[in-house]
């Protein structure tokens, strides 16, 4: 959270995170090149630029799987939150790995010839066969998406593009992932005879699919969409809402509501953090504010505003009780609207 934009709001966790990510990247490249040189000595060696380009390509592929796995892993087990916290930096690092891979490919394969290197690599040949499809185009398409994502990863763009469009733009990562898989399948897999790479790709695709499905199923089972009676939706007994935590319910219009209990009071806010769409209902009340589990954005339960000097506002919902059961109004209040909430007795009874 900030009142003024900064390039990076460093804190100790971000520094440690970036050091670990950079270290892992370095370990990967060094291990790949070292083993490549040792196992393929001259005169049967792989050219060093190609070796480095491949190391970067495989590293990018692995990083992409890690990045895409972090989200659903965190939805399934909140203890993975530290991996999620600085995922943006991991994404930007990943983009530069892809960019370097592309630079070497363009320079080495497309350079030194009678055509512009980029044209030589991307438009050099057509497709006579299915396996002859120019795989470089898939990689370039993915790189363009990664560029868009990396260059709009700052909070400045989150706010100015609006969270909805920002989220939509960054959802293109799944299109880019499909393009990357095609880049590999129609590229290196057409040449390499080892079954290792196709196996790894298959495991990666299936693993990510399973993780996302599991996270989606869990999300829906936690908070299935409920119909409203007279404009109110049943949440459940107040006693079932843990202290300082929320119960999330789905509305028929697709919105989700986080119904929080803070001490003796129950109030409701939107489940969507305006920062990056994080699930507020999976956060907790910290220092009197609902705190988003993704990046720690905070909001007052009373009116959905961020504590001063911050200026974010989120929609609130009216709540009422009936025989110990909490109900939430299906229509959201304007962002920043104060609500009364309902008071419960210690132990959860109304």
């Amino acid at each position: 959270m900030s009142v003024a934009y900064q390039a990076v709001q460093w804190n100790r966790h971000k520094k440690v995170y970036d050091l670990c990510a950079g270290g892992a990247l370095l370990v990967f490249i060094v291990a790949f090149v070292a083993v490549g040189v040792l196992l393929h000595p001259a005169p049967g060696e792989v050219a060093v630029p190609i070796l480095v380009m491949r190391a970067l390509g495989v590293c990018a592929l692995v990083l992409l799987h890690v990045i895409l796995a972090i989200g659903p892993l965190h939805r399934l087990d909140a203890r993975f939150a530290p991996l999620l916290y600085n995922r943006r930096h991991l994404g930007v690092l990943f983009f530069f790995v892809c960019l370097l891979h592309a630079f070497i490919a363009i320079g080495f394969y497309g350079g030194f010839g009678v055509q512009n290197p980029l044209i030589a690599l991307l438009g050099g040949y057509g497709s006579e066969t299915l396996t002859g499809i120019p795989f470089e185009l898939f990689g370039f398409g993915a790189l363009a998406i990664f560029f868009l994502m990396a260059s709009t990863s700052h909070d400045f763009f989150t706010r100015n593009l609006t969270p909805r469009w920002w989220k939509l733009l960054h959802s293109l990562v799944y299109v880019a992932y499909a393009l990357i898989v095609a880049h590999v399948v129609f590229g290196v897999l057409q040449t390499e005879k080892s079954l290792l790479l196709p196996t790894l790709i298959g495991v990666g695709v299936m693993g990510l699919t399973a993780l996302h499905l599991a996270a989606g199923v869990r999300e829906n089972s936690r908070s299935p969409a409920q119909g409203a009676a007279d404009g109110w939706v049943e949440v459940g007994p107040a006693s079932e809402i843990p202290e300082g935590r929320a119960r999330v319910i789905g509305l028929e219009n697709g919105d989700r509501v986080a119904v929080y209990r803070d001490g003796d009071t129950v109030r409701a806010i939107t489940n969507v953090c305006p920062h990056q769409g994080g699930p507020l209902g999976e956060g907790a009340v910290v220092d009197g504010c609902v705190t988003c589990p993704w990046h720690g954005y905070q909001f007052n339960l009373e009116d959905g505003t961020s504590p001063p000097p911050y200026t974010e506002r989120i929609p609130t919902y009216d709540v009422r009780t009936d025989a110990g059961v909490v109900f939430v109004k299906a229509d959201a209040n304007e962002p920043g609207t104060p609500t009364q909430g309902v008071t419960i007795e210690r132990g959860g009874a109304l």
Binding site: A31, V35, H40, E192, L196, L200
Partner: peptide, 17 residues
């Protein structure tokens, strides 16, 4: 990461002499 890098690098085909 290190093991994966080593295994994939080791699986590359020989470019020939």
């Amino acid at each position: 990461f290190a093991m994966l890098a080593a295994v994939v690098a080791g699986s590359m085909r020989e470019p020939g002499e």
